[in-house]
Simulated scan of single mutants.
Amino acid sequence: MGTKSFLTRARGLLRIRNQLVRECLAELLATFVMMTITLSSAAQKITFFETKGNLLTSYLGGALGVMAGIYVAGGISGAHMNPAFSLAICLIEQFPWWKFPIFVIVQTLGSFISAGAVYILYYDAIWHYSNGTLTAFGPRETASIFVTYPADYVSVANGFLDQVIGTGVLILVVMGLMDTRNKAVPKGLEPVVVALLVLSIECSMGANCGCPLNPARDIGPRLFICLAGWGLEVFSRGNGWWWVPLVAPLLGAAVGTSLYQLFVAFHYPEEDSEVLAEQGSIVLVNTTIEPDIGMSPKEKDTEETVPAGYPPPPCM
């Protein structure tokens, strides 16, 4: 009883009622969880397996990190964890544009903090493997634990196209998973299906440049390791590759969203548009997204608040 009373008092003191702040906190935590699992798997692949040949370890870590992040915050913020996905649902008018830059900053901050946590977690392993030198070049480089680089034979142009296609496929399929008029995913299993999707893309398109698919996943850790001792060479390696994971996934998200709309979503019967909007379909419809707090009928009696339009549709 004492513990319950303490938790009740703590909740009363710490509970945040502002919808935007709640969403940002949830998005920050989801991105942190996803990136911590993703970067930790990369750290093990490089510092322990040394041959860098055990790609499956890294790929599984990335996919399972996505699944964990969605389960952590999917019902609060939608668990975007990726500016490319946030852009995609802005384009289909399922997310307000004014929130887009806020979510991008939060996602980048979550990735930055996660890189710091993984650096601390694998501090001894990183310094042992690198022989005491933090570098982005050479056989003992450790920058690729945190960020992505193209293979030596891949040009910047080819890497850019790789990211446009990879992110386009990712967003296109996620559009189909979100569309209630398409093949429905059993409720509660959406994160598992998205994780399998990410794993399939990494296994089939990861060789060229590590398959970042996410601007926040790359720039947050890159900023951290630049400050933590690797220096500006983390930006110069790969012929100035750093800007590609920022720009190409956003373009790929726009391409994937457009393709799904043009080939699938635009062709549903018009008379079903209102029903689709209520069900959370990604068919492009003119709906008003309330940024403030709303009240559900269930919670009017308890005087607790929930975000308007809660819960959000299953997200990546």
Rank of each mutant, 00 (worst) to 15 (best):
C90W: 02
E274N: 12
A143S: 08
I171Y: 12
T108E: 04
L262V: 13
F6Y: 08
A136R: 04
P245M: 12
V164I: 10
L284E: 06
I219H: 07
E290W: 05
F235Y: 11
T36A: 13
S273R: 11
G294R: 09
G74T: 03
H80P: 03
L170R: 06
T36Y: 02
A79G: 06
L262H: 15
V147E: 05
S281Q: 12
N158P: 08
A43F: 07
W242Y: 15
L25E: 01
G210V: 13
G132K: 14
C203S: 09
A254Y: 09
M316L: 14
P297G: 12
E23S: 05
K52R: 05
A88T: 01
F266C: 09
L170E: 05
E93Q: 15
F112M: 15
E93T: 14
R140C: 14
K52A: 09
F100V: 14
L227H: 05
D179R: 02
L56F: 02
T31V: 14
L189R: 04
G75Y: 09
L232F: 00
T180L: 07
S144F: 10
V156R: 11
A253I: 03
P191I: 01
I282W: 02
W230I: 11
A73G: 15
P249I: 11
E233L: 01
V154H: 00
W230F: 11
N18F: 09
G75C: 06
A68P: 11
W230K: 06
N131K: 07
Y71S: 10
A125F: 06
G75D: 07
I89D: 06
V275E: 10
P291H: 08
L189S: 10
K45C: 10
P101L: 01
P191K: 08
L55W: 09
S273I: 15
V283S: 07
G280L: 02
V72Q: 08
L14M: 14
G229M: 11
I201E: 05
G280T: 03
T305H: 07
S111Y: 02
E50H: 07
L7A: 13
L60H: 08
G132I: 14
S236E: 04
T142F: 10
A42G: 13
V185S: 13
P314K: 07
L250W: 02
A143T: 06
A248K: 00
T3Q: 04
S5W: 13
F137P: 00
I289Q: 12
E270K: 15
Y122H: 10
E299K: 06
R181D: 12
P83R: 05
V192S: 14
R222Q: 01
E190Y: 06
I37Y: 04
R181E: 00
L87D: 06
K298P: 11
A308P: 14
M178R: 15
L39I: 09
V21R: 11
Y122D: 04
S40H: 08
G252H: 03
A265K: 09
I293K: 13
I120P: 12
E303F: 08
K300Y: 01
T47N: 13
Q163V: 05
W243L: 11
C315R: 02
R17I: 03
V104T: 01
T31N: 00
E50N: 03
G166I: 01
M35A: 00
G110D: 08
